[in-house]
């Protein structure tokens, strides 16, 4: 049984339509969700988390439909976005002390481990953190309740190359522990480094949903890099 299964997800805005997205994630699988800005990555992720209402389609986790099992599903998944900054003037220690009470599987040992790994200071406030450290704080909250699946919206945005590398190594470690990771990005090297599968979205339509090997075999022409292939495909569409 897949950890997450999306079927025919649809959402229409006046100037944008997400069209019949279907994909699934299995335990220990890392999926890179790539597309240019405005392609529909965040709309898809927000629909998966119930933050926006899709016009149609199904979102299931652990075999359960999201709507109707929202609370128990959120206990088992983690979400992080690089862009949003929660309670910028509150100490991390206070944010954590409130957040942990909501999660039955909160693991203080894991929390301490990631706190040390990310070199975060509990007495700082989010407003005192760099963009990269804010991403790490969001990840820390997501990882400390032993989430079986992580949904990360552009987690590498704003990170320096070293922090990005550390984060991608962390994904590999999570994979070994059986955690599934879906992360959106527009940086192709992130996907090349750690993703097993690729979801490529363009203008609200999923144009590729396959393993990295298959994508490279079918889409990259004669030694072309992933980035060059995607740029060529995007330019071909825009031309």
């Amino acid at each position: 049984m897949p950890l997450c299964e999306i079927k025919n997800l649809r959402k229409t805005y006046p100037s944008f339509t997400l069209t019949d997205l279907s994909f699934q994630l299995n335990a220990g699988q890392i999926v890179g969700f790539i597309g240019r800005n405005g392609a529909g990555k965040t709309t898809t992720i927000k629909s998966m988390l119930g933050l926006i209402h899709p016009d149609g389609g199904e979102v299931c986790y652990f075999g359960l439909p999201f709507w109707g099992h929202e609370e128990e599903i959120k206990q088992r998944i983690g979400y992080s976005t690089g862009a949003v900054n929660y309670y910028p003037k509150k100490k991390i220690r206070n944010i954590v002390s409130v957040t942990k009470t909501f999660f039955s599987a909160w693991d203080d040992g894991a929390y301490r481990e990631y706190l040390s790994l990310f070199a975060l200071d509990e007495d700082k406030t989010p407003s005192e953190l760099s963009e990269g450290m804010k991403v790490k704080l969001n990840l820390l909250l997501a990882l400390s309740h032993r989430a079986e699946m992580l949904i990360l919206d552009e987690p590498t945005s704003g990170l320096d190359p070293f922090s990005r590398d550390e984060l991608l190594d962390l994904f590999a470690e999570l994979k070994r522990r059986g955690v599934a990771v879906l992360f959106s990005t527009h940086i192709t090297s992130d996907i090349e480094k750690c993703a097993d599968d690729i979801l490529y979205i363009r203008d609200g339509k999923l144009v590729a949903n396959c393993s990295m090997d298959d994508f490279i075999k079918n889409c990259c022409e004669d030694g072309e890099s992933l980035e060059d292939a995607i740029l060529r495909m995007e330019r071909g569409v825009r031309a």
């Binding site: 609370e71 128990e72 309670y87 910028p88 957040t99």
Partner: peptide, 16 residues
């Protein structure tokens, strides 16, 4: 609102 409280809360394991 300035602290993105509603989005934070909506992501906790609670019903909307």
């Amino acid at each position: 609102r300035e602290a993105n409280d509603l989005t934070y809360t909506a992501l906790l394991p609670v019903a909307k």
